[in-house]
């Protein structure tokens, strides 16, 4: 994230996608890029951590195994409290989403690493996966009864059209809000970090006074780095919680 290219301090540079291995199928570019590399890395880090830490299958967990178990129980209790026990069939999906987003966010905190969750297409695809699951499962389980989601019970007849319109719009805006929230948080955080870190570099280049003045942006950079670690977790958590709530709609459409 803090990698500056040459002399120019360009906060947008870190989001550029570079092809590593060109791959062209039917005129469409499917190249293996730095984004692809970090997707692979995210999956590898998360999987290796979870598999190696639980390899011992200790009755009394070690530190690593405890972390794996805690992440399991954390996501499980989030899902159970938001959508009930019958939502546990979606547990693998929710857990995968949480771990993928969380590890991707954390990897993005490593200098020079690419942040895949700062790409709107990635977050949007994940959000569409959630909404698609909700919609398909909702209609599969309840048939037309799933449409009751848009008609809240106990609403007087004359406001039903208005409420239904609002419900439909809110349902359609879910993938947008879900994906933009994660994308914008990661993007903005990394740009801010880069800008303040850039100030430090620029000021230290301006002589003794500049080095003294650079303390301020340096302190801010440190503070924002800490904040970004919090955001990395928080956004993964928010994404997970919202996923759970949407899944609750698929399971129990009449609210």
């Amino acid at each position: 994230m803090a990698g500056s290219s040459g002399n120019a301090i360009d906060p947008i540079h870190q989001f550029h996608i570079n092809n590593f291995i060109d791959l062209d199928i039917a005129g469409i570019d499917f190249s293996f890029t730095n984004a692809s590399l970090f997707m692979v890395l995210t999956v590898a880090v998360a999987s290796l951590f979870l598999i190696l830490s639980t390899n011992r299958r200790g009755l009394v967990p070690g530190r690593m195994q405890l972390m794996a178990e805690m992440s399991y129980e954390f996501v499980a209790s989030t899902l159970r409290s938001a959508a009930g026990n019958d939502a546990m069939r979606f547990f693998p999906l929710v857990f995968s989403l949480f771990m993928f987003v969380f590890v991707a966010n954390l990897l993005g905190m490593v200098p020079y690493f690419f942040t895949i969750t700062s790409q709107i297409i990635v977050t949007f695809a994940l959000a569409m996966l959630v909404i698609g699951t909700v919609t398909v499962y909702g209609f599969f389980k309840h048939g037309a009864g799933f449409l009751k989601l848009f008609v809240p019970s106990g609403v007087p007849g004359y406001v039903v059209p208005l409420v239904t319109t609002i419900e439909v719009i809110s349902f359609l805006s879910r993938p947008v809000s879900l994906s933009v929230r994660l994308f914008a948080n990661m993007l903005a955080g990394h740009i801010t970090l880069k800008v303040f870190a850039g100030f430090v570099v620029m000021l230290t280049g301006a002589g003794a006074v500049g080095i003294g003045a650079a303390i301020m942006p340096l302190a801010l950079t440190i503070a924002i780095t800490a904040l970004e670690f919090l955001v990395a977790f928080l956004q993964a958590y928010v994404f997970t919680v919202l996923t759970c709530m949407y899944l609750a709609d698929a399971l129990h459409p009449s609210h």
Binding site: I17, L23, I28, D29, F30, S31, F32, T33, A35, S36, M39, V40, Q119, I121, V122, A125
Partner: peptide, 8 residues
């Protein structure tokens, strides 16, 4: 870059 990102 979308097709590549989506595929991967």
């Amino acid at each position: 870059t979308y097709p590549s990102q989506l595929l991967w």
